[in-house]
Write a protein that binds this DNA or RNA. Structure first.
Length: 262
DNA sequence: ATGGTGGCTTTGCCA
C-alpha cells in the first residue's frame, strides 16, 4: 500500500496535479489538507474521475479542510471538535485490517511566537496539547494507527534550511518542537519518513511562494509528516518526498510525501 | 528591518 499526504492549497486548482501524482507514483491512499472548499462544493466528479472511489472530506469556505481519496474501503472514525472551533482540521478513517488513519492540518500559528501576543500561536499550542491528550486517553499505542498531515512544525535541525535563523520563526521554535516531540513520544509514534531518510540529511516538504527562486535558494522546511504506531513499524517499506512537484506549473507550496507499507 | 507570493474573497485574511 502506498500512502501520500499533500497540502494541496486549494483542491479546485489541483485536478491536473493530482492526476499527475497518480500517473507517476500510483498512490493507493491520498490524504489532502487545505482543500479550501465547503463540503457542498467539493469537486468530487472532477477529481480523478473513476479512480480512488472511496472518499471522505471535511471542508469549509476559504480556509482549512481535509480529504481522503482511496482505492481501499474507508469507514468513518469520529474525532473531537478540536479547540471547540469546528474548523475542519482532522479527518479519521479505518482502513481494511483495522488500521486507523488520521489526517491532520495543524494551525499554522501566525507570525509572532508568543502565546500572549498572538492568539493564533496560542491556538496552535493548545491544538497540539489536545492532540497529545486525546491520543493518550482515547487511542492506545498497541493499535495500528497512521498519523499524517501538515503539522506545520519542522522538528529537526535538518528539517529547516537554517536551524539558527529559524529558532524564533513559527514552525521551528523550541516550544513547538517540544510539543510535537511530546505528542510523538506519548504513543511511541515512529516518524516513517526519517525511518528511511537519515536525520543527518536535510529534508524539506515546503518552500515559500515568496522566494524569487525556490529551488536555487532552497530555503525549505519539513512541515508534512507520516507517523505510525509500533504495530505498523515492521510493515514500513520505503519513503520519499516528491520535491519535483514544487516545480510544476502553478504549484502548491507543499509537495507530496509518500510512504510504502507491506 | 523589510518585503517578498498565492488563494479566496473582498478590497482584507490567511498561509
Amino acid at each position: 500500500m502506498r500512502l501520500v499526504t499533500w497540502n494541496v492549497n486549494s483542491v479546485r486548482l489541483r485536478f491536473d496535479h493530482l492526476a499527475r501524482l497518480v500517473q507517476r507514483w500510483d498512490p493507493d491512499v491520498i490524504c489532502m489538507q487545505e482543500i479550501k472548499v465547503h463540503d457542498d462544493l467539493f469537486p468530487n466528479a472532477d477529481l480523478l474521475p473513476g479512480g480512488h472511489p472511496h472518499r471522505r472530506w471535511r471542508g469549509m469556505k476559504s480556509y482549512n479542510g481535509v480529504a481522503i481519496l482511496s482505492r481501499l474501503p474507508l469507514e468513518p472514525v469520529e474525532g473531537p471538535d478540536w479547540c471547540g472551533k469546528g474548523d475542519c482540521r482532522h479527518l479519521a478513517v479505518r482502513l481494511p485490517g483495522g488500521v486507523e488513519l488520521h489526517n491532520f492540518y495543524v494551525p499554522a500559528g501566525g507570525d509572532i511566537p508568543d502565546r500572549k501576543a498572538n492568539p493564533k500561536f496560542a491556538h496552535k499550542l493548545d491544538f497540539l496539547d489536545e492532540m497529545t491528550d486525546w491520543f493518550q486517553s482515547e487511542r492506545k499505542a498497541q493499535r495500528k494507527m497512521i498519523l499524517v498531515g501538515d503539522l506545520n512544525i519542522a522538528p529537526l535541525e535538518t528539517d529547516v534550511w537554517s536551524h539558527k535563523q529559524l529558532l524564533d520563526v513559527v514552525s521551528h521554535t523550541p516550544i513547538e518542537v517540544e510539543k510535537l516531540t511530546g505528542l510523538q513520544e506519548g504513543l511511541g509514534w515512529t516518524d516513517a519518513v526519517r525511518h528511511f531518510i537519515p536525520p543527518k540529511d536535510k529534508l524539506y516538504s515546503w518552500w515559500s511562494y515568496r522566494a524569487a527562486d525556490w529551488n536555487a535558494s532552497d530555503k525549505g522546511r519539513r512541515l508534512d509528516h507520516i507517523w505510525v504506531t509500533r504495530p505498523l513499524k515492521g510493515q514500513l517499506k520505503g519513503a520519499s518526498v516528491l520535491r519535483e512537484a514544487r516545480g510544476w506549473a502553478q504549484p502548491s507550496d507543499h509537495v507530496p510525501v509518500v510512504v510504502d507499507f507491506a
